[in-house]
Design a protein around this nucleic acid. Structure first.
Length: 939
DNA sequence: GGAGTCACG
DNA sequence: GACGTACGTGACTCCG
């Protein structure tokens, strides 16, 4: 059959499949002879998936896998350094390449590679021919270099995310249509492929320029018209290099290629060939699956070759997800069978389904369990049918155990110290169980494992992990609950659908655990996971469940007072403006100030709106002479904004967070929320309750201790500067901390040659800003803006600082250097923070460097307080005291009045000694304490 | 849903 | 000498 209209060609980027398979799987070897086969196994699995997936609308009629033939292509003649930076292939991957070709042929799929050309050129050429013949094309790849081919009957499919890449996605990535993608790439260059591009120009700027000038050629011709000198020079001086870059990134869609499209027609695989190959590779599971699908007997593996070649990890990554195989557990006998299975295994993945993301309010709807890849069940407990009307006639769905009965059967297992309970974000499920009297322990948590290994690389939600590491997109929760107004709670999901979704969650979690467990060790973060992540879960769960008492009346009174003041300010503001407008709209405010009142210097951002941040408004308030109206208006708006913030975010929203059952506010901490190891707090965020302004601080008066109790606050003094003094090994600073002198004053004294006893507050303030700046990866610009001084002056301060403390400069540059080499930085306790952008070019590099400088310091401080929190419960177990909140360097407790002194002593000891014995700081860690009826008084 | 703004360490 | 920049978060409001 000839290729023509109605035909749909799928072109698989073979290299992408191989690398994806290699990195997703542990280093497996063939049992009989030790041959490395992990990448081959994964490749076969992906290819088989591609052949068996039914995508109704876009099913291929023709199919081919395209490979790169070798490393030398025509591009090396144009530019010898092309792809010269590529790291050496891993030793165990190289020998697997040949097998991936063999596998492709065994699956009866055409396998194309041409010497001197990249796979991308072949894909470009075949795509063009297919289009000219009247057919359509889907390229299976996520490689951005292929995006220039998209459009006009050609699209891409990202095999990992199972996401189509069409015109919109290309535009999103490059800021231009596909036909201008090469122009953008030529300008931006590519550090991975070593395409030079123009120095200092990234994708964003490139797109901007191309869109403005239409094309690369006209841009280069008219480069002299570019207003920004840096950009102009980058283009003028590098025009040749840019043209070369374009030839490197442009794919050759017209290469000599002796492959007829009709030969790519989809063919059934030959069972003997494919099973013979899989059997020879000793892929047990895949052999069985393929045999099943082809409806033939699976060949038995030779006994002397070894029968069990697949480790748990491959099982996890390659066994199919069969939703119909999940069991619905509806009675005690069936649940007892699962309990027996769990006891035999020694571990189980657990997941709960509930009616709310707020664990303190959620009702339990069901529980799922998994004991091995593909073997999972769901226990429906609280599903309802029908609708709630006035009489609440919703019925309990049939065939469900009573919650109490199920929990009674599961409790001994969930609490058994010999049985490991595995979860994804176990804190959530542990709280759900704890509120029902079941105290789950011990636990493992796949989310925390991912965080320990891959902080900074990606998020750690289950869906993302499943896609990345299992190559599987789980059923989206939205497909069950809907979204927006029509969204229902999980108890309204029909049980048969819930089984498929919920059991899959447990299945995915178990598989991730099987994959991650050996990976933790390889990444050398086992200690981090075991000492800083896993033990924190029960501690945080208890703090969150304890909550903190918040006085509604206090908040409500404040709220009313704020509302009144705001109304007054609003009237005044509108009178000055001479017209009514929405004070809360930065856009309208900007127009009033800069257009109507003619304040000069209004700067519009990317969106075309004037910037009206607090710093800008503060500048305007100083224009009393030139623009008295605007100055007054700006001052009023600043006041209004402060009140508006306090009212909406604190006095109003906090009231809504008071739990009706406990009368307290229960935040939720995210362990993986910050890349540095800090916690984050949400719903509500209790880590940003106001304290800096007098008016805002009063919000803390609403956080109270119950009668007979007090709040105790303990916070580390200057912990980040102490850590800096230690890691950068600055003896003067260390000595200052040991002697307990004012560190900012000392810095000022050293820098400005002012004796300590003659220190002024202004000089000290400047030194303080510099000290903080250092922690953040200081820049002259940043310091200048912070201190509102000329940039040259700020730079002078920094120079003097580094002159005085040269060790700091060394520390900073060494940190950046090691991040560039390793791709991550580490805290003193071994936590890794990945820095994937550290070798980027353009402004991104600056961000990444500063983040890399800051991360070990902020992260070490985060580790210290985590260690203190983990030790705290045992240290205060005999006291009538509860740890309630953590605010990065502060812990807040509630304690019986008469035990407050004891608590302070104990908690202080734990906090000050938290680094030992793992790390011995050369400076003391000092904790300051306060107590009172309210948080305001305790701080 | 993104941008702007602002609360905290 | 000039690109544009302090590090890390979460919540609220506007507005397309």
């Amino acid at each position: 059959m000839t290729f023509g209209k109605g035909c749909h060609l799928h072109l698989i980027d073979g290299s992408a499949f191989i690398f994806r398979a290699y990195h997703a799987l542990p280093p497996l070897t063939r049992k009989s002879d030790g041959l490395p086969v992990g990448a081959v196994a994964g490749f076969c699995n992906l290819l088989w998936g591609e052949l068996t997936t039914t995508r109704s609308q876009e099913a291929p009629t023709h199919l081919a896998v395209i490979f790169d033939a070798g490393s030398i292509t025509f591009r090396n003649e144009i530019y010898p350094e092309y792809k010269a930076n590529r790291p050496e292939l891993p030793e165990d991957l190289r020998p697997q390449f040949a097998f991936t070709r063999e596998a492709t042929r065994a699956f009866n799929v055409p396998c194309i590679e041409i010497d001197g050309y990249e796979a991308d050129d072949i894909i470009a050429t075949l795509s063009r021919r297919a289009r000219e013949a009247g057919g359509t094309v889907t390229i299976i790849s996520s490689d951005k270099d292929l995006m220039q081919l998209v459009g006009n009957g050609v699209d891409m499919l990202d095999p990992m995310k199972n996401k189509r890449i069409g015109l919109d996605e290309v535009f999103e990535k490059f800021g231009v249509a596909p036909d201008r993608v090469v122009d953008v790439q030529a300008l931006a260059g590519d550090s991975v492929d070593n395409v030079p591009g123009a120095p200092g120009i990234g994708i964003k700027t490139a797109a901007l320029l191309i869109n403005e000038f239409g094309s690369l050629e006209s841009l280069l011709e008219r480069a002299g018209e570019i207003p920004q000198p840096k950009r102009r020079e980058a283009l003028v001086n590098n025009a040749d290099l840019i043209r070369i870059s374009k030839r490197l990134v442009a794919l050759d869609a017209d290469m000599p290629l002796d492959v007829g499209l009709e030969t790519l027609e989809l063919k059934e695989p030959d069972p003997d060939t494919i099973l013979g190959f899989l059997n020879a590779m000793e892929f047990r599971t895949l052999t069985r699956r393929v045999a099943e699908k082809l409806k033939v007997e699976a060949p038995a593996l030779d006994a002397d070759k070894g029968t069990e070649v697949q480790t748990q990890a491959t099982q996890a990554a390659t066994a199919p997800f069969v939703h119909d195989a999940y069991e619905a557990v509806r009675d005690a006998a069936a649940l007892q069978a699962w309990v027996a299975r769990i006891r035999e295994r020694g571990y189980v993945a657990v997941d709960t389904e509930t009616t709310s993301l707020d664990e303190m309010r959620a009702d339990l709807v069901g529980i799922s369990l998994a004991t091995e890849a593909g073997l999972a069940c769901y226990i429906p407990l609280g599903h309802r049918t029908g609708t709630d009307d006035l009489f609440g006639t919703a019925q309990r769905a049939e065939g469900q155990m009573a919650e109490a009965e199920a929990l009674a059967i599961l409790k001994p297992v969930l609490e058994d110290p010999a049985i490991l309970k595995i979860g994804q974000n176990m804190k959530y499920d542990a709280k759900i169980f704890a509120r029902r009297g079941v105290h789950v322990a011990p636990i493992d948590d796949t989310m925390l494992m991912s965080y320990a290994m891959h902080a900074g690389l990606h998020n750690h939600g289950m869906d993302a992990l499943s896609e990345t590491y299992l190559g599987h997109v789980p059923i989206p929760i939205k497909s069950l609950l809907g979204s927006g107004k029509a969204q229902v709670t999980f108890d309204r999901v029909p049980v048969d659908q819930a089984v498929r979704y919920a059991a899959e969650d447990a299945d995915v979690t178990l598989r991730l655990w099987q994959l991650f467990k050996p990976m933790l060790h390889k990444a050398r973060v086992t200690t981090v996971y075991e000492t800083l992540e896993r033990p924190l879960v029960p501690v945080l769960a208890d703090m969150e469940m304890a909550g903190i008492q918040v006085d509604r009346d206090t908040l409500s009174r404040m709220s009313n007072a704020f509302a009144q003041k705001m109304a007054g300010l609003e009237a005044e503001i509108q009178e000055i403006a001479g017209e009514p407008f929405n004070v809360g709209s930065p856009k309208q405010l900007g127009e009033v100030l800069f257009d109507r009142l003619q304040v000069p210097g209004g700067e519009k951002g990317k969106t075309g709106a004037y910037a009206t941040g607090a710093d800008i408004l503060e500048d305007i308030t100083t224009l009393q002479d030139a623009h008295p109206q605007a100055a007054r208006l700006a001052a009023r708006v600043l006041d209004w904004r402060q009140l508006s913030k306090l009212k909406s975010t604190y006095t109003d929203a906090l009231q809504d967070h008071i739990n009706p059952e406990t009368g307290r506010v229960h935040t939720s901490y995210s362990i993986t929320g910050a890349v540095t190891g800090r916690l984050s707090s949400n719903d509500p965020n209790l880590q940003n309750i106001p304290v800096r302004s007098e008016e805002g601080r009063r919000i803390r008066e609403a956080f109270v201790a119950p009668r007979g109790r007090v709040l105790v606050s303990l916070d580390y003094s200057q912990i980040e500067l102490r850590i800096l003094a230690h890691v950068a090994d600055i003896s003067e600073l260390q000595q200052a901390f040991r002697q307990g002198v004012d560190i900012h004053a000392l810095t000022a004294s050293e820098m400005f040659n002012v004796p300590l006893d003659q220190m002024t507050s202004d000089i000290r303030r400047k030194a303080k800003a510099i000290n903080f700046g250092v922690i953040y990866g200081i820049s002259g610009f940043g310091l200048a803006r912070n201190l509102r001084i000329p940039r040259a002056e700020a730079q002078g301060f920094i120079d003097r600082y580094f002159e005085r403390f040269p060790g700091i400069r060394t520390y900073m540059s060494e940190t950046v250097k090691s991040a560039q080499a390793a791709g991550y930085v580490q805290t003193l306790f071994g936590r890794k923070i990945n820095t994937p952008e550290i070798n980027a070019k353009g402004p991104t590099a600056g961000f990444a460097k500063r983040a890399a400088i800051n991360a070990p310091i902020q992260g070490t401080a985060a580790d210290v307080i985590r260690r203190a929190m983990i030790r705290m419960p045992a240290a205060i177990a005999d006291l009538p005291a509860t740890m309630l909140l953590q605010v990065h360097d502060e812990l807040l407790f509630e304690v019986d009045e008469d035990a407050a002194a004891t608590l302070v002593a104990r908690a202080k000891d734990v906090m000050e000694g938290a680094a030992a014995p793992a790390v011995h700081f050369k400076v003391p860690l000092i904790v300051e304490a306060g107590q009172g009826q309210t948080w305001a008084a305790a701080h």
